[in-house]
Design a protein around this nucleic acid. Structure first.
Lengths: 338, 338
DNA sequence: TTGTATGCGTTATCAT
DNA sequence: ATGATAACGCATACAA
């Protein structure tokens, strides 16, 4: 007895395509997946049949049968930071042409939330995973390990374990900012840090070391808060800093929105930039080039990071052996504020 | 002959849970899904068994068997506009607690790209769909229709067809800006529009009508470009406008980044804001309150839109009858620039 | 190179 | 209220 299942989606199945093409379902499957063992003429027949029926493979069935999906999971700490949006776009541009769907997860700078996202996503057996940085919970690392799913870390570099990573040295970037300010003759240098994620701390570390070597490091000028980075916060912190330490003559900000806020606050306070204080931002976010004065910043290669990370992942999926670390560097963009 | 399938994921299955609990798989399935026809004691047994085995349902199998997933698709025109990020966050906050996974699609303001995303996502049988606005291709509308998947439109209102929507009147918002500027005694009013998506056009329409009623509409002062909205663009367009029409005394911007760019450019040009020109932005994006001068803007309820849209969708899934249109209004925030 | 048999893990159907 | 059976649509393993 033949029953038309009410559960069916109504969409044509591989079976129907195969029937129309006069081959077995498995041959149709192979043909459509581009598996070389199928005769070219059969491939053509199957393609035509699929085309005429409007066949689209059922991802659930495919995932169930093969126990792996056509998705790649990307976990970022924030979507409010324009930085990661640009990285995500680049990732999608690369993976989309390979037929991979990109699933975005935002863990709001919380490793615990990242762990939850990872757990939720792993049950779907993604083809690959792209993570931001190396600051994951032990459970996250464990899950990644046992899942065996290819993973690439973005934004930071790390030579431990041979983990695949695409990024740049956050510490060197911080050092570069310090060198630049010193080169401008600045001596009372502050670091202004919000969010305090690992990369912010690394930049601060690089900045500190250079100042220490120069004998100019003053812990009192290290402003840090766990609050989220924002323009408003940058203004507040900058005003307070100048109030408490009027002799400050240079500030490195962990992110451009802080620097933008500081520049605007300086306008209000009548503090001359860069004459009295030099400002150096980080990431070179969209608005920075248009501030008054235009902000000096360290441009980070976020699109390139996304693109290369996605490419490395594809290489992993294709079994291509490649160097685990990709250093994309960064670029100091000198404008009017320093 | 028993074979340990090499295809298995190694994770415990419903079968194993059922066995451990001493019930049939289907009872275990019902128990875990909270279907009421299962005896409380059995539910407890099954829960315990699942717990001890660390059982997590396989979404692919579930989707295949039930021909519907636990995902909701959200399509937005941009991720670069902070606006939509906040909406997305609100949506996720609501849907996550119901165990629904949110899939984000960015169609870059292209209805054709939206159509592709829709087509790709529909094969996964999402539980619901959240779209931005009403500007979809005929094919998109057709697919939505035949899919029968619940859909809520965000950001705009429309009484046609009884489509579910959560938003506010873009046209009224544009009108409000005009009224405000007129109330400030401004007479040579410009509208500066980028991107030219439907909502930008609606705001311009509302703005225009008020000016026409007042006999003050001047087409020469309507600046519009398809380019993406940005701070840099705002500065450029503003400078050009002032150059060509030195008598302009008020500008309404379709988005705050344009207004921010204009404010910065005014600083450079030495144009007094608001003395010579009043500026009114739109969306009240993060930086606007900190500009010099602080920008007047129309605050749009994007978090509320996301939250309510998600709630309406949940209502639809639960078969709760509700009013198809939810008007969340907007708020003129008067600061220093007008 | 192609096909047969079977399994993936879950839920719908229908019977009890 | 619970269970037996089949089906969801596709891919793997192995045979031919």
């Amino acid at each position: 007895m033949i029953r038309i299942g009410s559960r069916s989606t109504g969409r044509p199945t591989l079976n129907e395509v195969a029937k129309l093409a006069g081959v077995s379902p498995i041959t149709a499957s192979r043909a459509l997946r581009g598996i070389s063992t199928v005769a070219p003429e059969l491939v053509e027949k199957v393609r035509a049949a699929a085309q005429s029926l409007g066949y689209v493979a059922n991802p659930a069935a495919r995932a169930l049968a093969s126990s792996c999906s056509q998705t790649v999971v990307v976990l970022v700490p924030s979507l409010s930071n324009q930085l990661f949006i640009e990285t995500l776009e680049a990732i999608q541009d690369v993976l989309r042409v390979r037929g991979l769907d990109v699933l975005i997860g935002n863990y709001h700078y919380s490793p615990e939330e990242e762990e939850k996202l990872l757990r939720n996503h792993l049950v779907n057996r993604p083809r690959g995973i792209l993570l931001t940085g190396f600051d994951h919970t032990a459970a996250s690392r464990q899950m990644l390990e046992t899942s065996g799913i290819p993973c690439v870390h973005m934004m930071e570099l790390d030579t431990r374990l041979g983990a695949y990573c695409v990024g740049f040295s956050q510490q060197q970037a911080g050092a570069e900012a310090a060198h630049h300010l010193l080169g401008r003759g600045r001596r009372r240098l502050a670091y202004m840090a919000a969010q305090l994620d690992p990369r912010v701390l690394q930049r601060g570390e690089g900045f500190r070391r250079v100042l220490e070597s120069a004998g100019l490091f003053d812990p009192a000028l290290q402003v840090s808060t766990r609050q989220a980075s924002s323009i408003g916060l940058g203004g507040e912190l900058f005003a307070r800093l100048l109030d408490q330490h009027p002799d400050v003559d240079g500030v490195f900000f962990c992110n451009d929105d802080l620097a933008q806020g500081a520049a605007l606050e300086a306008l209000r306070l009548g503090v001359a930039i860069p004459e009295r204080v030099s400002l150096v931002g980080f990431n070179d976010l969209p608005g920075s080039a248009h501030m008054v004065p235009r902000l000096t910043s360290i441009r980070t290669p976020r699109e390139e990071v996304g693109q290369r990370a996605a490419q490395v992942l594809l290489g992993l999926l294709d079994g291509i052996s490649q160097h685990p670390q990709v250093d994309l560097g960064f670029e100091l963009v000198v404008r009017e504020s320093s």
